[in-house]
Design a protein around this nucleic acid. Sequence first.
RNA 1: GGCCCCUUCGUCUAAUGGUUAGGACACCAGGUUUUCAUCCUGGCAAUAGGAGUUCGAUUCUCCUAGGGGUCACCA
Length: 484
Amino acid sequence: MSNQSVRTRFAPSPTGYLHVGGVRTALFAWLIAKQGDGQFILRLEDTDKKREVAGADAHIAESLRWVGIGWEEGFDKPGKHGSYRQSERLDRYQEWAKKLVEQGRAYADPYSAQEVQKFREEAQATKKPFLYRNHRPENPPEWDGTQPLRFKSDPKNYNWHDEVMGDLSTGPEVIDDFILVKSDGYPTYNFSHIVDDVDMEITHIIRGQEFIASTPIYLNLYEALGVTPPIMGTVPHILGPTGNKKLSKRDGAKDILDYREQGYLPAAMMNFLATLGWNDGTEQEVFTTEELISKFDMKRIQKNGSRFDETRLSWLQGAHVRKASIDELYKLVQSFWPESAEEFPDDYKRRVLALLQDRLKHFAELPALSSFFFEDLEPNLDLISSHKQLKKLPETELKSLLSEAVAMLKDNDFSENSLVAGLNELLEKTNQKPAVLFSLIRICVTWSPSSPGLAETLNLLGKDRSLKQLEHALTIPLARAHSS
RNA sequence: GGCCCCUUCGUCUAAUGGUUAGGACACCAGGUUUUCAUCCUGGCAAUAGGAGUUCGAUUCUCCUAGGGGUCACCA
């Protein structure tokens, strides 16, 4: 019966999308499983029917899959432990509940919700902490399933070890009789996750710090069940961009799949999430998935919450883009090209991408960076009038420089080398600074605020299109008329 | 309020008794024959406060302050 391999799980409730916080918790658990050559389980905690959102389960699965997190067993991938959807495991919780009742460790709660609430308010009025067990009925009715079933706790001190937080301890005052099974027959999270983790032979529980306060009651329940608790790792929250509150959907935390829409690389996202609150002790910042698996260590997770910083994500994205091979990158950006790129052959687009690799971050920027390679943009005279050097030149000067450029380029074979040579000669011939001459040509060919190197750009655009753009520029007024 | 946890540059963090407190992001300046980037160089910038232990505290102890979590028939 003993299973030595590491088994971790991520157990979201299907109430909506996943944001970076949830995915990070899943990632940590996944890394531990992969590192131990073990299994990662995706379980669905769907015991609150009221909060359930249709389709959330598939959306969650899709989110994890995108980041690169896969699971050996899950709600959509049955394994040796039956269903991984709690709503389909009700019999199992009933069995365990009955066992606890037989052992005298669980009893029916005879009070109505209103009555319990009254106890709570009384305690509050006398400034005492509310404990249900102070009202524990002497002769509880037999549990018929219509009342909530409560755990009969055994209050005591607890000292336990948390892989992230270190040694923790609490007194008996935090141990109370909590509800195991709700009056609708569904188990509470507090009960179901323990039964499931035992059944599914989970060895490490990784979860957010909101569960740290209830860990003692879980320990109490494990004891009643005669079960050794799994290893626990409590991960601090990710903080929102402002304030010190935990990142939440309410404050605009995005669906993780929004980052896919914006064209972030899964590897960059994984790198970002893993290093938010964790580092390997060296100065390494950029990690591959394989490196994360081999280097991850729960003991090095930060005890305090860390702030979500999209700027860092963007930087990591750039780092991963630059590391990627063009083939890899080309596959990933396929849905992000501007519409005008559609007609162009793969080879051409691949070359555009190669020129853009150093300046591309998330792929949604691709159209803005590349459109002039696929279509002739409208002349934008602001580019000249706002240019430090060009704005000082009169119309005649601009036109004559352009004419010289056209003349030179007409004689050029447009190989990159010839272009570099030709442009250099032109600098000498016109006695101009690159800041003037190259800017003017670049702007009149692309009409784009930025572009790759001039020779590379002309080379890729080709002789016909480059000359056509320059000759067109010769026919329009370039210098803005000064009013004074 | 009770209980628990946390506190190093703006941000992510390194350093567990001896360092000019290190790195990265961001920002600023300079360089790489134009722009935007990349890359390189330099700069700015932190141990929450107070006691104590010690020859010596970011590091150990205590107190204070601040922040967070939790106290559901939600997970």
